[in-house]
Design a binder for these strands. Sequence first.
DNA 1: TTAAACTTTCAGTAAGTTTTGAAAGTTTAA
DNA 2: TTAAACTTTCAAAACTTACTGAAAGTTTAA
Lengths: 165, 165
Amino acid sequence: MDLSEGKHQFIQAWGTLGTSWGINKAMAQIHAVLLLAEKPLSTEDIMEALQISRGNANMNVRNLMDWGIVNKVLVPGERKEYFATGKDIWALARQVTVERKKREIEPILKVLGQMKNVEGEESEALEEFRQVTKDIEDFTIKVDNVLDKFYKSDKNWFLKLLMKM
Amino acid sequence: MDLSEGKHQFIQAWGTLGTSWGINKAMAQIHAVLLLAEKPLSTEDIMEALQISRGNANMNVRNLMDWGIVNKVLVPGERKEYFATGKDIWALARQVTVERKKREIEPILKVLGQMKNVEGEESEALEEFRQVTKDIEDFTIKVDNVLDKFYKSDKNWFLKLLMKM
DNA sequence: TTAAACTTTCAGTAAGTTTTGAAAGTTTAA
DNA sequence: TTAAACTTTCAAAACTTACTGAAAGTTTAA
């Protein structure tokens, strides 16, 4: 397989994988294109590379910027906007962690918090309900803490932790 | 809020949350119903509790069984099949980990493995491609290892690890 | 100013996913 | 056996999410 075919395959695959990560295909593919690009790309470059519409390209680039994964790059003397993504995978992972925490963890905690308002005659059924919801909450808080630590950590900390494990 | 309203809200919420976890709504809701039930439920019980069709109930119960989260329970003297889920959240988390690893991590490693077949004249571009794909692979393998450890671990191990962090 | 170059929005359409329910299949017990 | 009780399958319908492309908006520089 030659380089351009490899890149092509990687971009396709990254798009598919993205969907199982809760990231839409175009968003993941744009990220892949930028990751493999040798210089910042314009919206048009992206449209062409992936054969997608202007609206789609624009919206997903913006999403990637909201996630803090892609940056605008201004090329001196050029009017057009260019985009690039960092090639540091650790930084990427940390940013993705924040977003997934926001989407997957925080809403659980919110719902479980509300379950504390359940009241009524004390009974075994009520007791069990409280136990189950509390167990889930305790666990979720722990996961939340781990992800927070990961986010705040640097690569070395993580590697050291792995050693300890 | 009284108990039955609390349960109802929890079941609804668990369904919605499920979708942001890559689990479909009915599957997550069935899990919630079983989690809060005081005894094993039949397909009909589930259909009624969630107002869903037989096909939907059947398919998603089967999915939950494939994930190892729900078990068939045979009630002596009864022809019908009943289903139950464990109330141990740690066990649940570990089983979910296996499935998510299968869906989210393993396919990445497979794609990255294929990227090793990229060949051609040595150039800076090729070098960079190799670097990026290798970085992602290294990181992914580390995450994979952590998840494996978690899966194989018990609750205490995890709690101790949290202390160290 | 103004008009050219560029970016963003959004209503309509397309694609993908989930759900339904009736039909087919299976098991059990009489 | 066979028929009743139950489970599974699957094509079509409903729902959800993503994408398009033209129109509206914004910025820049002459």
